[in-house]
């Protein structure tokens, strides 16, 4: 079972780009789903990958991610759910229900 989740953030939403995120949310199922937000010194896909490895994250939920980093994380046995759009709280809620998959759009559609 995947326990530790990382979501790159852009305001209240999942960041549109993995490589441009300067904030990430990390939450752990083992520790009462306690959520912590980490602010990164600068946006960098490499640094974010290092953080994923250092934090021993099991699942990364993001939107746009380059193939290189997707393959790297997958190779390191990190599950990546990409092209997920929406507020991180809704995304996390769906994840906890075991229903989140790549390409899910949880945004309010207006207009």
């Amino acid at each position: 079972m995947a326990n530790k989740i990382l979501i790159p953030l852009y305001g209240n939403d999942v960041a549109p780009r993995f490589d441009l995120a300067t904030e990430v949310l990390i939450t752990d199922l083992d520790e009462n789903r306690e959520e912590k937000i980490v602010v990164l010194p600068q946006a960098s896909a490499e640094q974010l990958c290092s953080l994923v490895m250092a934090e021993e994250v099991d699942v990364v939920v993001c939107s746009g991610i380059e193939e290189e980093y997707y393959q790297y994380l997958t190779w390191k046995r990190v599950k990546v759910l990409d092209s997920v759009i929406g507020p991180w709280e809704s995304v996390l809620e769906r994840f906890y229900k075991g229903r989140l998959k790549s390409g899910d759009i949880l945004c309010d559609k207006k207009g």
Partner: peptide, 14 residues
């Protein structure tokens, strides 16, 4: 109906 930056995902959007 979705904000453009979520679909275009361009550097300039962010």
């Amino acid at each position: 109906g979705i904000p453009c930056h979520h679909i275009l995902r361009s550097k300039i959007c962010l």
